[in-house]
Design a protein around this nucleic acid. Sequence first.
DNA 1: ATAAAATAACTGACCGGAAAGTTATTTAAT
DNA 2: ATTAAATAACTTTCCGGTCAGTTATTTTAT
Lengths: 216, 216
Amino acid sequence: MGELVSSNEETCRWRRRKEERPAEILAAALKNFSSKGFAATKLAEVAKEAGVSKGTLYLYFESKEALFKAVVNEFVLPQIAKAEEQAEQNTGSIKHLMVKLVEQWRINILETELSGITKMMIAEASNFPELATFYLENVIQRTRGFVANLIKLGIERGEFRQCNYDYAARAFLSPMVFSAIWQHSLAPFDDSYDMNEYLNIHLDIFLRGISKDSLG
Amino acid sequence: MGELVSSNEETCRWRRRKEERPAEILAAALKNFSSKGFAATKLAEVAKEAGVSKGTLYLYFESKEALFKAVVNEFVLPQIAKAEEQAEQNTGSIKHLMVKLVEQWRINILETELSGITKMMIAEASNFPELATFYLENVIQRTRGFVANLIKLGIERGEFRQCNYDYAARAFLSPMVFSAIWQHSLAPFDDSYDMNEYLNIHLDIFLRGISKDSLG
DNA sequence: ATAAAATAACTGACCGGAAAGTTATTTAAT
DNA sequence: ATTAAATAACTTTCCGGTCAGTTATTTTAT
């Protein structure tokens, strides 16, 4: 943990590492925001884990809020881009693509620290309006729009029945979001919830519910 | 709000009102915990809204955590008891009872300050393990068990298909919990989500998904 | 009835610790 | 020698919890 110097154990108290600092700080910030939430994250702890002093944090990020926004830009937005690309390259059915998207959610979000960011934002939005609008505009609305478009396409193709695709997108996404929330709130105190099972059931119900034919 | 004396505007700085204090403090605490969350709630503010000094709070409640537990006992548990009674007195189908339960959720939880308690607990469970286990044992497990029993009964009666009724209970409850969470997190910043619509769609999908016949 | 004494409800200034953010100083690198 | 990266000590603010003192109310004595 507290490794300050690399190989040559020189008599250096610290090194100048302008290039590497941001990435190391962001990694520590992600870990802390994810596990503790925004308010409960201590910048002193982030600094310690990044192997720098608290002051150094402020050399690279203006404030705690700026640091969080940087975490979102660095780690969350690329995931959305990835999903969008996967959709573009999709050649099979929309239904199949949606199964794949849930699978990607599991692997890339739920089972990584990113689920903690999802939970954190939902949990603390009301206490940090500035972050709330940032996250809403850059993450939520973009994701919702992306899924809504997908469903719209499914309807046009005759895979899905006529429905309000905007609400259908919410119905599709909310259990995924819920899984992230639960995992970082009461699941650790509960006899462990099988998230895979939970997501499978919801996906099954959703696809059944939206299909043109009643079998899904 | 800051009414200290009732009718006669006497030259009293305060009155002794041992009987009324707890209820007034609990009401102010509910309001604050609901809108701000646990950590962000300031006891000085609760005291002010209850018309007492901060010190008086500690005459009636041992700590912030004890105050929160009292709020749950006073306002949340009676709602669960109410639902349990309604289930006992039910003469129609289980399916119909579940529609009614969602309706009650809307009226008694979602559209009241209690939805804020639901959200608060999910949001801050990880930072307050003591409260988390208290809430899990007294609220979550009791509610989940109640619904699981209902679904089990529905299966025995032939209304529902064979399924893991424990997970089915989670599938039934999680969108309700999600509605409360969303309402107190990003909904205020979003173009307003129609929660009724959201709940209706989920109820429809759930009942379709669990029915023995495919129509629901 | 009245007033003094006793009681307990209530107040609010204060304490201690914690954490965000700042800055004077030190140290590495060139 | 000079620059700038990094530090560590500092300031400020905030809040849960405490407690010594104040005041409304009740009780006792006359």
